[in-house]
Amino acid sequence: MSVITLPSAQVAAGAGHLPPVCPRHGEPATEHRSVKLISRPPAWAAIFILGGGILYLIVALAVRKTVKAPAWPWCATCTAQRKKLLAIGLPLLAVGVLCFIGGIAANSDSTSPLLILLGIVALLAGTIVAGRGGQVPMTGAVVSGDGQYVEVKKGSDRFLMALNRGRTPV
C-alpha cells in the first residue's frame, strides 16, 4: 500500500482511462460510481476558525479544488464497508436525537443532564461514523492543492500494477 498519484485529467476522463480495479482494495470493480473528489483545506485556513465556523467554511469552500470522477472503480469491499459504517452511524444518530430530546423533555434534575450529554455524544459519534461511510471518504482519494492530481492514500499495489500494465495517462 502506497500513495498513488493520478493526473486529474485521467480521473475526469472516466471509464476506459482507469483500470477496472478498486484503487483502494485492489479487487475487481463491481461497478463504477460518479464521485466528486475534493481537496483538503490548506493549513493556513485554520486561522479562520477563530473568526467563526462560517468564516472558515467560506474560505475552505472558496479555495478547494474539485475533480469530478464520472466512473470511479468501486469493489464489493467498498460497498460492504460503506453499508457497515452507515448501519452503525445512522442508528447512533437516531439514538442521539432521542436521548437529547428525552433529556430536554424529562423533568428530572438528575437524569436530564445525563441524557442530554449522552445524546450529544451519540450525535457526535454517529456523525463521524456515518460521515466516514460517505462515497468520497470511502474512495480514500483527495485532490492535490493545485488541482492537478488525485492522490489515493493507502492505494492498492494491484491497482498500480493494472494502471502501469497498459494504461496511458491522458
Score class of each variant (00 low, 15 high):
residue 113 P to R: 06
residue 13 A to E: 08
residue 79 T to Y: 00
residue 98 L to Y: 06
residue 39 S to R: 01
residue 131 G to H: 08
residue 12 A to N: 15
residue 125 A to L: 15
residue 120 I to Q: 07
residue 84 K to P: 01
residue 24 R to Y: 08
residue 93 L to I: 05
residue 90 L to H: 08
residue 163 L to V: 04
residue 11 V to Q: 10
residue 15 A to Y: 11
residue 125 A to D: 09
residue 73 P to N: 03
residue 125 A to I: 08
residue 114 L to D: 05
residue 73 P to L: 01
residue 98 L to E: 03
residue 134 G to W: 06
residue 96 G to V: 03
residue 67 V to Y: 02
residue 128 I to C: 05
residue 18 L to R: 12
residue 69 A to D: 04
residue 102 G to F: 04
residue 3 V to F: 15
residue 96 G to R: 02
residue 89 G to R: 02
residue 113 P to L: 06
residue 109 D to Q: 12
residue 87 A to E: 00
residue 9 A to Y: 02
residue 15 A to M: 10
residue 113 P to A: 06
residue 55 L to D: 05
residue 51 G to H: 04
residue 138 M to V: 03
residue 3 V to D: 15
residue 116 I to S: 04
residue 166 G to Q: 05
residue 62 A to N: 08
residue 82 R to H: 01
residue 93 L to Q: 06
residue 15 A to S: 14
residue 54 I to R: 14
residue 57 L to Y: 11
residue 30 T to S: 12
residue 121 V to Q: 10
residue 166 G to F: 05
residue 24 R to A: 10
residue 145 G to Q: 15
residue 50 L to H: 08
residue 165 R to H: 13
residue 95 V to P: 05
residue 27 E to Y: 04
residue 169 P to R: 09
residue 49 I to H: 07
residue 74 W to E: 07
residue 77 T to Y: 01
residue 3 V to H: 15
residue 132 R to F: 15
residue 18 L to C: 11
residue 82 R to V: 01
residue 78 C to P: 03
residue 90 L to Q: 07
residue 124 L to N: 08
residue 114 L to G: 11
residue 163 L to R: 12
residue 142 V to W: 10
residue 99 C to Y: 07
residue 60 A to V: 02
residue 46 A to D: 09
residue 103 G to V: 03
residue 162 A to T: 04
residue 40 R to Y: 09
